[in-house]
C-alpha cells in the first residue's frame, strides 16, 4: 500500500463515530483521509490525519471496545496532541466545537503550555505547545522529581 502512516496510531472508539469525525475536525482540524461505510451507512473504518500523524475513529465494534459514554465516562487511555503554535486559540476552537475544557491552557514546569478537554462522548484529550526550553536540572529542581531520559 502507498503508505504515509506513522508507526504508532491510536484507534479511538465512539458510539457515534460519524459524529466524532465531524466534531474532531471542528475542534482540532483533523482531516478525514479514509472512510468506509456499509450499505446501511454504518462506519466500518475511518482514518483522520493531523500533521504527520494519524488516528483511527471507530465504533464500539466488539464487547471489549467501548466509548467512555458507555462506561460511566472512564478513560483507559488518552491521546496527546502536540502543536507548534497558539495553543490558546486551539483551546478556544475546541470549546466552540462543544468540548468541555477540563483545564485551561497553562504553562507546565517542563516547558509546554497545555490544556485538557473532554469531547462530547467523554474522551479526554490533552494538547500541548512547547513554549520554552527547560533543562533537566531546572525541571527537577522545580518539580522535585527525578527525571530520566530528558532530551
Amino acid at each position: 500500500m502507498a503508505d504515509w502512516r506513522p508507526s504508532l496510531i491510536s484507534a479511538v472508539c465512539y458510539r457515534d463515530p460519524k459524529a466524532a469525525l465531524t466534531f474532531l475536525e471542528a475542534a482540532f482540524g483533523f482531516e478525514l483521509v479514509m472512510l468506509i461505510e456499509d450499505g446501511e451507512g454504518n462506519l466500518v473504518h475511518s482514518e483522520m490525519r493531523f500533521g504527520d500523524a494519524a488516528i483511527m475513529i471507530g465504533s464500539e465494534w466488539s464487547a471489549d471496545h467501548k466509548s467512555p459514554a458507555s462506561i460511566g465516562g472512564k478513560n483507559t487511555q488518552t491521546v496527546h496532541i502536540k502543536i507548534g503554535s497558539d495553543v490558546d486559540a486551539h483551546c478556544e476552537r475546541a470549546r466552540s466545537a462543544g468540548f468541555e475544557i477540563l483545564m485551561e491552557p497553562e504553562t507546565q514546569f517542563y516547558g509546554d503550555r497545555t490544556y485538557r478537554a473532554r469531547d462530547p462522548e467523554g474522551h479526554i484529550w490533552t494538547v500541548g505547545q512547547p513554549v520554552q526550553a527547560v533543562s533537566r536540572e531546572d525541571a527537577e529542581a522545580v518539580s522535585g522529581l527525578k527525571i530520566t531520559g530528558w532530551i
Binding site: E31, L32, V33, M34, L35, I36, E37, E40, G41
Partner: peptide
C-alpha cells in the same frame, strides 16, 4: 442507502 468508500489526499 449505499456503501461509501471515501479516501482523500493532499
Amino acid at each position: 442507502m449505499t456503501s461509501r468508500v471515501f479516501v482523500a489526499l493532499r
